[in-house]
């Protein structure tokens, strides 16, 4: 009969990822680079919003982009046209990025001279919320066609974000989307979240968002 011992651990399954993410954030602080983790459902407008964001800020900030997808490089090609330094990451079937994959991406991108790196995470409202990537700020996009009830259905995603961009405001008349109800649903999960309505397509509301982002970069790099 073998002697077994029982280690009473009581540690989160995500503990190792959280440690890696914390280390990454410290390194980014030393390098004065703000890493932003941008999340949303597929088709909510991450790439279009990103293009608008880069165009609004590229005269004042040096920006790098990591495009994470399960496959293809269509998003990276779109972003490259803005002139921002861009790399495509493939998750190999995984539905999210973790801290180690983010680190590898940052090494591939080379953050020297960059003020801001935006990670466009895999389009998904579940898994990316579970894994701390090491990002300094978490931002998500909820688009009007998805509905105002999403904060109730995906509570974790809404609870971890600093900013929630409500995109596709231009199609509001065609959808049954109640902005006040949506804001109230967000507040239930995250009273501190900043909610900014935008239309990436029409380039509306972008200034409020990029002002917030520029301030965040400046205070992180102080």
């Amino acid at each position: 009969m073998e002697d077994f011992k029982i280690l009473e651990i009581k540690t989160s399954v995500f503990a190792d990822n959280s440690i890696q993410a914390g280390k990454l954030r410290e390194e980014l602080k030393d390098k004065k680079v703000l890493l932003l983790n941008l999340m949303s459902s597929p088709g909510a407008g991450k790439t279009t919003t990103l293009t608008r964001t880069i165009n609004a800020l590229k005269d004042r900030l040096t920006i790098g982009v990591m495009e994470a997808d399960i496959d293809s490089d269509v998003d990276a090609r779109t972003i490259l046209k803005t002139g921002a330094k861009t790399i495509q990451l493939h998750t190999g079937g995984m539905c999210h990025l973790d801290a180690e994959m983010t680190r590898q991406g940052l090494e591939g991108l080379d953050t020297d001279g960059l003020d801001l790196v935006i990670l466009e995470n895999v389009g998904n409202l579940v898994c990316p919320a579970e894994f701390d990537t090491g990002a300094v700020k978490n931002v998500m996009i909820l688009s009007v066609p998805e509905g105002d009830d999403k904060p109730l259905k995906y509570p974790l995603m809404f609870s971890i974000c600093d900013v929630i961009l409500i995109n596709k405001m231009d199609v509001m008349p065609y959808f049954d989307f109640d902005m006040e109800k949506c804001k109230a649903n967000i507040r239930l999960r995250n009273p501190n979240a900043i909610v900014i309505p935008i239309s990436a397509q029409k380039n509306e509301g972008i200034k409020e968002w990029t002002d917030w982002l520029e301030n965040a970069v400046n205070s992180w790099c102080e």
Binding site: I9, S12, D16, N17
Partner: peptide, 16 residues
């Protein structure tokens, strides 16, 4: 989703 979670758990336990 669960597969990614378990991969992360394997790393955590490896360290422990």
């Amino acid at each position: 989703h669960e597969l990614g979670v378990l991969n992360s758990m394997v790393h955590t336990i490896e360290r422990i």
